[in-house]
Every structure is written in structure tokens, then in C-alpha cells.
Design a protein around this nucleic acid. Structure first.
Length: 917
RNA sequence: GCCGGGAUGGCGGAAUGGAAGACGCGGCGGACUCAAAAUCCGCUGGGCGCAAGCCCGUGUGGGUUCGAAUCCCACUCCCGGUACCA
């Protein structure tokens, strides 16, 4: 009797053995092709959740695949260890952020170990370790010296709750993207990275194979628009530059609007308007970002009393201020063309300002500015527009639009404006008024100038108490007191860096985490860079994934890779283009959601229609008595427009019409059907909802190999979906079956050559499929193919007709193909099968195409596109023979009697379609 | 509003112009068992039929094609991103 499969003992034993054998240690070897596999490093929250497994396990499997394919694979891991949660934990429990963080790292290392990944722990890098952040500081200094880091005043996002500023990328709907804390606009002096200098290059994705949605999100975020810069002049002679994407409508500009914070507002404001202007500016300044962004908000604004001259026709137009114009976009001032811009139109009507149409819409009456009820944007012919009268205008953008092109040429010819490109993206705000981060290594000197700290690292003092108010660095005399390059006393910068700065370059630190002479060892970098495959969450599309691209390009231009390039060349590797992008290929997993919920008690009132109840009102009320009228029951399932509800009298189908009243106590947003569906269905996992799936428990119960297999099998990896706690047993059965197949003695009774060949055929087809699917990150179908092979082998084990050779080959290939997915059990069975070396050092099997070829294939015979018969034929059958065989079929003959053959489409060997009338 | 992705059995999902529903879960029936679990065998999109078989079926409506889940047009809903961006 074969030994039972005990995942506990087996998995621990192999993890220990791999450690002691240093199986996953990767070393530079210029004689072998390299492969740098990377998965996003976790934040040190203290608990590895199922999402980490879901992200990391396929990444590990892919790295293992590449290794078996002969690559020298580097697959490192580390920790993103600075950040606010550590400070929050400190405030809550009195533990120092450092203590909290290092304890969490300890715990997470243990959890990561149970995954059975091939991480090379000798490459581990931790961003809060001084040996790491000294180089974060050093890189900041290089950026500063290279003009890419600067201190400047801008309207920034300030979070009162978090007591710090945030980057634009970290603010969503006027709230902090991580905690939801509200954000205000404040004018402050802060540290920025000049990411906008790279806007154009960041829009070029031609050198990288990244997931399409991420590229689209980045392009949208960068937000390139083409247009013109045009300068308006005030009566006082001040210049007001504006950016416009529609310079062709310049002749329709009837007023100007400046952002309330615009520098020229004071100069423009007339005495009699000063009170109103100041009042408006005060109100606008106190409005939160959320209020300011509210859709459909009434337009507000105030006339400054000043006028400006339209450069194209000298028209004198009033200058207003309004908060719908943002200081941070373009020049913070616009020319308003109410006839052809929705916002300007709303403002003009609200303030009773003139509207002049300059586009005569295609196939319609000319527009009259006085009577128009909405702005017009669309094709037509330019009118009232001096030199461009009669020019056609289209829906195209920029120079593609004839009217825009004509205007640009005219403006430039007359020196009145220039063609210009504007970007939505702003410079990356990297200073944070927090303690637990990498210090910004800058000094404020007594003469008022600033200079970088020469003696790095600036150590973050660990004897401070974090209270949640202002950062303790701001009051720590020992930290503040510094000496500048002239030996004079200076004050240290107390802001720390955005943690995205730390994670922008961690893939370089991994190469040589102990290296003391630079951020990374050029000898290592020359071999391993760039990252070949990167995996992680798409939610980082406009944050980490954008920042790290910028960072790499900036370091390249600052010469940080120069030495690395020289080493590459000395080994005959051409460095051209290798430092343009950090990661050549990137794939993003979806999100694992909480398990679908059932069991909410619903109180439903409505009309019976047959055996269905058409609801008039639905209320979620878990305390309702079950006998209340007319229907109270627990939700079983839901459909697009109906629910299955279990009542004391059985299951009732409830139809929910659009006008049904739906009440969900405690739910956010309007109580509609979609809200009801969202409420009862899929939910994000969170501790407060109590639907968190704990991987440690799953590993204990089913084993890491099963958890790994299931995570890869149960979802479309790039899509994710709700967790289903029942499904995992199927993956465990599969793993059990593999154990059985490989440990029970196989002896054939009577060997059938046909059966043996058929098994070999499936085995080699499985190699082809698994190889293709794993390479393409199609994990679910790769596992499905292995399950199909398992099913066949279970059958063959019963019939005992295949030869021992064919059987042994099947077992060994099953193990090899499964090794990247389930590394422990395959290793164990590999050794039990008599192999001495690790299966993870074995070569990936290669399919024998000849063996994989089917001797006979099914020819589908259709009549008028409907399948009417199937015939076994040779795979190399020609059109004529296939058609003849199809026609000869008895079943087809029966159909042919009913009509005349008009046409035959033959696609041998798969299909013949006979068209009759 | 704009940009992207999506809608396929009871559920997760296969199939990217040629056999819809691979693989798995669940369900049903059976075997083993004193019994249950585990395991094993069979069935499992809907409808009609004793059966051979036939009809219907990939969100909705239209179209292209010998042939459409797949391509095109219009729409509905869901998910993600973004939003007074000039």
C-alpha cells in the first residue's frame, strides 16, 4: 500500500532542504542567458493576505518555468517598509514604527516561506534599513544636482487627517486613495520631481510589452493635448498667456476667466470690485477639493473690473475670476468662448455675458449667440473669424482639424501665438510632513539658500515618539542641527520622501543589497538589467508603474547607469536602449474579492404574478420576523432582475422592476437595484466585513501546493473574482491524484500499441498546451490541461493497456509540467521516482510534434451551416476527398434529397459545409 | 460626461470566424459502509421524443458571412480609470 500524502511534513521538509542547498541562489554567469523576474514587493502591513499569494504565486511559477527552460533566473523579494500605517500603529499601540515594521517583516518572511517560492533571500532589500535609504537619499541628491528635484510653491493636496501633503496620483475624488481621508487645496512650498519633463517620453510605450489597460491609463493620466499658447494683454499692459485646444475659436472669445489664485488678479481688480473679488477668493480658498469637484455645481465667479485685449481682433473683453478655472492646469487663465464650450456657456448665461458664435454648424441654421440654449461643438464652417472665415472645421483634434491648422499658421505668421502642447500630469510632489520615511537630505543655510547634505545617510532618529500631530522631526533639536559645506550651522529639512520614491528603484537595490559604493553594483546590473517580467496590481498604473518608468529614465540621463553600460560592453552586451525602461514585460493580476454572500433577510412587498412575486418594495432587515407579510426570506441567489428567496413556504422567485423601492440600511449611495445586487454579491475583502480569506489557514488545511494550484486554476488571472471556499477541494483532489499516479506501482496486463500511442499523443499535446499557456500567463487553462492528462492517466491505470514506457513517460512529464505550479509534491515524487537532483533543476520537457500529431481527425460535416455528421478522416485529407466523403455520408444523403447542392465549402481536415436550397 | 474592459449552464470559467460550454465546483443517481465522511462509477444548458434524432441556446435589437460567443452598427447593464484639464 502506497504511503499517504501528508502535505505538512513534506512541504516543510522541502522548504528546509531548498534553503540548505541554496537551490534558489542566483549568481551572475555571463555564459548563460539571464532572466530577471520580479513581483511587486509587499508593504509591511504584518499579514500576507490571499491577494499577495494570488499576485506572487503565478510570478513564481513563471520564474520556475524560465529556469527549467535554461535561463539563469533572478527572483528576489523585499519589503516596502516606510509609510503611514507604521505611524498609525505607533499612535494606537505605543510601539515605535521601527519596532512594528521589523516585527512585521519577521512574520511576513515566515508566511512567504510557506508559499514555496524560489525567492533568492540573499537579495532581500528593505526600504527602511539605513543601508537602503542612504541610496534613496543619494538618488534624491543626484536628481537635485541634475535639476530634476526642486523646491517650489504650488497649490498642493493637504490632508488634515494625515497631517501631510499628497501627490496628485494619490488623490482620488478629493480623498486620499489609501485611507479616504479628505484633502484640501493649499498653497505650499514643497519638494517636487520634474516628471513632466519626461511627459513625452513616458507616452512612448513602444519598447515595452505591458498590459494594454495600464498603458491607456498612463496615457490618459499624462493627458497630452495639442493647441496654442496665445497672449492676451490687460489694459495695464500685463500679459495673460492662455493655452487653448481650440485657437480657431479665438474670434468667439467674449471674456476671460482667471483662477481665483492667479497672480494678476490683484493688478486687474478695480477699486469698486475689490471687496467682491477678495470675498470670492476667500470663499473659493476655503472650499474643499470635494466641494469644488461636485458635478453640476452652479458656476460662480466675480468680475475683476479689469479688461484685456483679444490679440486677434483687438476686442476689449472683461476679465473675471471663477473657481472652474484651475491654477494648476495650463496657465491658470482661459479665454472663454461660450458659444463653443459647455463650461464657458454655463458661466456666460449665469453671469449674463455675451455669446458670439463663430461656427456655422453643418446642415443647420446659423447659430445666434443670444438665443442659443447650449454650446455647439462639432463640424461646420468658421464664421465671424476674420482671416479664417469660411474654413471648414471638423471633430478632429489639433492640426488634424483644418480650422485649427489654419489658425495656428495664421497666429504664427503674425506673431500672435505659438503651437503648443499641454499635459494634464503635474510634477510629482514627493515631500511628506511625516516621520516614518526616508529623510530628504537637504540643508537650509543661514543665508537663506539651500544645499544638499554631503554626509549621507541622514539617519532617521529612532528615539522619537510619534504622536499623530506634526512630525517629531520638526522639534528634535539633535536632528535639526546640521553643518553646511562651509562649516556654518544650518537647519535640516524635516520632510521625508513619498514611499513611492523608495519603491521606484528597489529592483536595482535587489541586485546587490549589501553594496556600499553605490545604489547597485554595476557588475550585477550589467548582467541582470533590465527586469524581464514584472507582475503586480494594476491599481498602481498611475502611481508606482508611472514613477518607476520616470525614475529609470531620469537615472539614465543623470549617468547613474554609465558604469553599468561600460561593464556590459566589456562582456560584449550592447547597452543601447537597455536603460530606457525598468521592466520590459508587465502583467497585472485582477483582484480576489470576498466570497459571495447569501443569507441576508429580505422583506418584500408586491404582487403575485403566477408563481413569481413582482416586488414593489424590498428592504434588507435581518431582524424581521419570518412570518411577516407578504414575503420574508433569506436570499439564496440573484440574477440580473430577479432574486431567489428562501421562505418558510419554499423558494420564491422575486422579480425586481426598475421602479421598486429598495431600502438597504447602512448602504452608501442611492438604494437601487444595482446597490442591492452589489450589497448581496461580491465584496472587497476587508476586516470590517469579516470576509477576509486567510492563506495561512488554507495552507494548513490543504497544503501550499493545493493553494497555489487553486489560485491559478479558479480564475482568469488578469481578471480575478470572488473567492469560493468550496472550489478548492477540486484542486486538492487533483494534487491527491497526482500523488496516487506517481506512487502506485503500474503494471500492464496486455499492452496495446494503440493505447500506448494515444497516451503518448496526449502527453505531448499537453506539453505543447501547458508551455504555450504558461508563457502567456494563462494559468487556468494550463492547469486544466494537466487535469485532463490526470483524468486520462486514471483511466489508463484502470485499463492497464499502455506500456510501462509510455506510463513512465506520462508520470515524469506530468511532474515536470506541474513543478512550477506545485513545487513541493513534484519534488518529492521526482525523488521517489529515483531522481537524485532537484526537479527544479531539470530541463523543461520538449514536445515531440510527430508524437503529438493525431492519426485521425474528426471532419465536421455541415448542411447549411448546421452540423449533421462527423466522420473520422486522415489529417492530410485534401478538399476533394473530404467533400466526397462528406457527400457519401448516409446522414448527409438524407438532407441532400431535400434540395439541390448550390455550393460546398471544404476546409479540410476539419470541416465541410454543404449549402443546399 | 470621457477613456478602457466586460456580459457564455446553478457557480468559476473554456472556445477569437468553423463541433458552444474544455477543466473544476455544485447537483442528481448508483457502488462501498451498520452509518457518515472520504473514495469510486454514471448523468448533468433548456425543450420535444420510447428511440434514432429534432428544435432552441453565448446581455438586447439589427447587419456582414456558406458559417458569428467571436467581425460591424445601435442599445442596456456591470466593472475599472478619470473628470469644470480650457
Amino acid at each position: 500500500m502506497a504511503e499517504k500524502y501528508d502535505h505538512h511534513e513534506l512541504e516543510r521538509r522541502w522548504q528546509d532542504r531548498w534553503d540548505s542547498d541554496a537551490l534558489y541562489r542566483s549568481e551572475v554567469d555571463w555564459d548563460r542567458p539571464k532572466h530577471y523576474a520580479l513581483t511587486m514587493l509587499p508593504y509591511t502591513s504584518g499579514d500576507l493576505h490571499i491577494g499577495h499569494w494570488y499576485a506572487m504565486v503565478p510570478s513564481d511559477a513563471r520564474a520556475r518555468l524560465m529556469r527549467m527552460k535554461g535561463y539563469n533566473v533572478l527572483f528576489p523579494m523585499g519589503f516596502d517598509a516606510f509609510g503611514l500605517p507604521a505611524e498609525n500603529a505607533a499612535i494606537k499601540s505605543g510601539v515605535h514604527p521601527a519596532t512594528w515594521t521589523w516585527a512585521n517583516i519577521e512574520r511576513m518572511r515566515e508566511q512567504l516561506r510557506t508559499m514555496g517560492t524560489m525567492f533568492d533571500w540573499e537579495r532581500e532589500a528593505i526600504s527602511c534599513d539605513p543601508s537602503y535609504y542612504v541610496w534613496t537619499e543619494w538618488l534624491f541628491r543626484r536628481l537635485y544636482e541634475g535639476g530634476l528635484a526642486y523646491r517650489g510653491e504650488a497649490i498642493v493636496n493637504w490632508s488634515p487627517a494625515l497631517q501631510t501633503v499628497l501627490a496628485n496620483e494619490q488623490v482620488i475624488d478629493g480623498k486620499d486613495e489609501r485611507t479616504g481621508a479628505p484633502v484640501e487645496q493649499r498653497k505650499m512650498e514643497q519638494w517636487f520631481f520634474a516628471i513632466t519633463k519626461y511627459a513625452e517620453e513616458l507616452l512612448d510605450f513602444s519598447a515595452i510589452d505591458w498590459a494594454e489597460p495600464v498603458k491607456v491609463m498612463q496615457a490618459n493620466w499624462i493627458g497630452r493635448s495639442e493647441g496654442a499658447d496665445v497672449v492676451f494683454t490687460t489694459e495695464g499692459g500685463d500679459q495673460i498667456p492662455v493655452f487653448t485646444t481650440r485657437p480657431d475659436t479665438l474670434w468667439g472669445a467674449t471674456f476671460m476667466v482667471l483662477a481665483p489664485e492667479h497672480d494678476l488678479v490683484d493688478a486687474l481688480t478695480s477699486d469698486d470690485q475689490r471687496v467682491a473679488v477678495d470675498e470670492y477668493r476667500e470663499v473659493a480658498g476655503s472650499r474643499s477639493e470635494i466641494e469644488r469637484m461636485e458635478v453640476d455645481r452652479e458656476k460662480t465667479g466675480v468680475f475683476t473690473g479689469g479688461y484685456a485685449l483679444n490679440p486677434v481682433n483687438g476686442a476689449k473683453i472683461p476679465v473675471w475670476i471663477a473657481d472652474y478655472v484651475l491654477l494648476s492646469y495650463g496657465s491658470g487663465a482661459i479665454m472663454a468662448v461660450p458659444a463653443h464650450d459647455e463650461r464657458d456657456f454655463a458661466f456666460a448665461r449665469a453671469m449674463d455675458l455675451p455669446v458670439v458664435s463663430v461656427i456655422h454648424p453643418e446642415g443647420a441654421d446659423p447659430l445666434d449667440g443670444e438665443t442659443m440654449t447650449e454650446s455647439y461643438v462639432g463640424p461646420g464652417v468658421m464664421v465671424n473669424s476674420g482671416p479664417i472665415d469660411g474654413v471648414e472645421t471638423t471633430d478632429a483634434k489639433g492640426r488634424e482639424n483644418p480650422s485649427v491648422a489654419a489658425t495656428l499658421d495664421w497666429l504664427e505668421g503674425n506673431g500672435l501665438g505659438t503651437e503648443a502642447v499641454n499635459y494634464r500630469m503635474r510634477d510629482w510632489l514627493i515631500s511628506r510632513q511625516r516621520y516614518w520615511g526616508a529623510p530628504i537630505p537637504m540643508l537650509y543655510r543661514e543665508d537663506g539658500t539651500i544645499e544638499p547634505e554631503q554626509n549621507l545617510p541622514v539617519i532617521l532618529p529612532e528615539d522619537l515618539v510619534v504622536t499623530g500631530g506634526a512630525s517629531p522631526l520638526t522639534t528634535d533639536e539633535a536632528f535639526l542641527a546640521a553643518t553646511d559645506s562651509d562649516g556654518e550651522p544650518a537647519t535640516r529639512e524635516t520632510d521625508t520622501m513619498d514611499t513611492f520614491m523608495c519603491s521606484s528603484w528597489y529592483h536595482y537595490r535587489y541586485l546587490s543589497p549589501g553594496f556600499g559604493a553605490g545604489p547597485f553594483d554595476p557588475e550585477e546590473a550589467a548582467y541582470w538589467l533590465p527586469v524581464d517580467v514584472y507582475t503586480g496590481g494594476a491599481e498602481h498604473a498611475t502611481m508606482h508603474l508611472l514613477y518607476t518608468r520616470f525614475f529609470t529614465k531620469a537615472l539614465r540621463d543623470l549617468g547613474v547607469f554609465d558604469e553599468t553600460a561600460a561593464v556590459m560592453e566589456s562582456h560584449g552586451r550592447d547597452p543601447t536602449g537597455l536603460f530606457d525602461e525598468p521592466m520590459l514585460m508587465s502583467r497585472n493580476q485582477g483582484q480576489i474579492l470576498g466570497e459571495e454572500r447569501t443569507g441576508d433577510r429580505l422583506v418584500i412587498a408586491g404582487q403575485w404574478r403566477g408563481d413569481r412575486l413582482v416586488a414593489e418594495s424590498v428592504r434588507v432587515d435581518d431582524d424581521a420576523p419570518l412570518d411577516a407579510a407578504p414575503v420574508v426570506g433569506e436570499l439564496l441567489k440573484h440574477d440580473d432582475d430577479s432574486l431567489q428567496v428562501a421562505t418558510t413556504n419554499g423558494v420564491v422567485t422575486v422579480e425586481i422592476p426598475d421602479d421598486a423601492a429598495i431600502e438597504i440600511p447602512g448602504a452608501e449611495g442611492p438604494s437601487e437595484l444595482s446597490a442591492l445586487r452589489a450589497h448581496v454579491a461580491i465584496q472587497r475583502m476587508s476586516k470590517s466585513r469579516g470576509n477576509v480569506v486567510n492563506p495561512d489557514e488554507l495552507v494548513e488545511r490543504y497544503g501550499a501546493d493545493t493553494v497555489r494550484t487553486h489560485l491559478m486554476f479558479a480564475f482568469d488571472w488578469e481578471k480575478g473574482g470572488p473567492w469560493d471556499s468550496h472550489g478548492i477541494v477540486g484542486s486538492r483532489r487533483f494534487v491527491d491524484d497526482v500523488w496516487k499516479l506517481a506512487t502506485t506501482q503500474y503494471e500492464p496486463t496486455t499492452v496495446s500499441q494503440d493505447s500506448s500511442a494515444a497516451l503518448r499523443r496526449l502527453v505531448h499535446q499537453t506539453i505543447q498546451k501547458v508551455d504555450r499557456d504558461m508563457t502567456a500567463f494563462k494559468w487556468n487553462t494550463a492547469v486544466a490541461a494537466l487535469m485532463t492528462l490526470r483524468n486520462r492517466m486514471l483511466d489508463e491505470r484502470t485499463s492497464r493497456e499502455v506500456s510501462t514506457e509510455a506510463w513512465d513517460e506520462a508520470v515524469s512529464i506530468l511532474l515536470l509540467l506541474l513543478a512550477p505550479i506545485a513545487p513541493h509534491i513534484t519534488e518529492e515524487l521526482w525523488h521517489r521516482g529515483g531522481n537524485v537532483a532537484s526537479i527544479h533543476l531539470a530541463a523543461w520537457p520538449e514536445a515531440d510534434a510527430a508524437v503529438a500529431t493525431e492519426p485521425m481527425v474528426t471532419l465536421v460535416v455541415q448542411v447549411n451551416g448546421k452540423v449533421r455528421d462527423r466522420i473520422e478522416v486522415a489529417p492530410d485529407i485534401d478538399e476533394e476527398t473530404a467533400t466526397a466523403a462528406a457527400m457519401a455520408s448516409e446522414r448527409i444523403q438524407a438532407y441532400l434529397e431535400h434540395g439541390e447542392v448550390r455550393k460546398v465549402i471544404a476546409r479540410p481536415p476539419g470541416l465541410v459545409n454543404i449549402v443546399i436550397n
